[in-house]
């Protein structure tokens, strides 16, 4: 009940943000030097024909008016048609979004597992001679962005060891069952274990490339929050009550230290979701990222606007979920 109220309140914050985001997006793209109308016409088109196309696309109107028209359509779920691909934009996003979310969730899982395990390890190494070495290790790990991990993984596991597939979502020749768009889930629903295996194999490299890049900050924050928590009175008091160290870590320290870590993971997910774009491009993974990059190269405005907005919506949804989770874990923030 409280959670619902909070989510409702959160929506009141999110909607204005989305409005401002869409306005910014629209304005930023209208300073574009290229003329989307001219690009949508064959090279033989005359000036008048281009003018007519401009009018048809509403590009001759003043900017606020263009925005109002566009927003009116968007509210009704109409993002227009792609100039380049000549297809409905909503349809294109619907086809690619699940793939990207699937990748991002798998990557976040990798980041969370590596991050939490690494954080505990770093914490266990406190006051140990190996500590500076481990910490320098995380600094160096932080210096490898996700697209370099992606390239390195292709080079090592794909090309040198030939251990893993690194293009697309499935082996060539396999036909994917289209139920929800989430391939791993669809394969399970269809009972096709061969497809599940192939899809999982194709997921490993991109998910690890993306996840490993975002694990080090999680490690560090978990470690430093654990260090902070262990200075708190209630840990000392728990020791004075004779509780075992394991119990103190699991039942007292982690419950508190996870809170700042969770906040960070919320922020990280936004970055990770954006980072999926590069990984998709490198692994030819058919998701939002590839759609976006193609659209950018072709100055395909309707797609750029729709995909840009989609990224924001997903980030805001995830942030709201993390906020709600934070609230359930932190009694101090709940209404007194």
């Amino acid at each position: 009940m409280q959670l619902l109220a909070t989510l409702g309140r959160r929506l009141l914050v999110v909607l204005p943000i989305l409005f401002v985001v869409s306005a910014l997006l629209f304005t930023a793209l209208r300073v574009l030097p290229v003329d989307p109308a001219a690009m949508s016409m064959p090279p033989t088109a005359t000036r008048d024909e281009i003018e007519a196309a401009r009018r048809a696309m509403g590009l001759d109107q003043p900017l606020p008016q263009q925005y109002a028209i566009w927003l009116g359509h968007v509210v009704h779920g109409d993002f227009g048609r792609s100039i380049h691909l000549r297809r409905d934009v909503v349809e294109l996003v619907r086809q690619t979004l699940p793939a990207t979310i699937e990748l991002a969730l798998c990557a976040m899982l990798v980041a969370a597992v590596l991050g939490l395990a690494g954080g505990l390890l770093l914490f266990a190494l406190r006051d140990n001679p190996a500590e500076p070495v481990a910490e320098t290790g995380t600094t160096l790990m932080m210096s490898v962005p996700e697209f370099l991990w992606a390239l390195l993984f292709i080079f090592v596991f794909g090309v040198a060891l030939q251990a893993m597939p690194f293009t697309g979502r499935l082996d060539p020749g396999m036909i994917r069952p289209d139920i929800t768009g989430f391939l791993l889930l669809d394969a399970l629903l269809a009972g096709r274990l061969d497809i599940l295996r192939s899809a999982a194999a194709h997921m490993v490299l991109p998910a690890f490339a993306l996840g490993i890049a975002f694990a080090p900050p999680i490690m560090r924050v978990l470690r430093s929050s654990l260090l902070d928590v262990y200075h708190e009175d209630y840990i000392h008091q728990a020791r004075l009550r004779g509780l075992s160290e394991t119990r103190i870590l699991l039942r007292h320290a982690l419950k508190n230290a996870i809170l700042p870590t969770l906040t960070l993971m919320g922020v990280q997910f936004g970055f990770l979701f954006g980072g999926s774009l590069l990984v998709e491009v490198i692994y030819s993974y058919p998701g939002l990222g590839n759609l976006m990059v193609d659209a950018v190269r072709n100055a395909d405005l309707p797609i750029i606007q729709a995909v840009g907005l989609t990224y924001c919506v997903v980030v805001l949804v995830i942030n709201s979920v993390v906020d709600g989770l934070y609230l359930t874990l932190n009694p101090r923030l709940r209404a007194r």
Binding site: L24, V267, F271, G275, L277, V293
Partner: peptide, 17 residues
């Protein structure tokens, strides 16, 4: 508002503009 854009996406959009 800025944080709701993944940085990569925002910079791509800006570069397009």
């Amino acid at each position: 508002v800025w944080m709701s854009f993944p940085p990569v996406i925002l910079s791509l959009i800006l570069m397009t503009g």
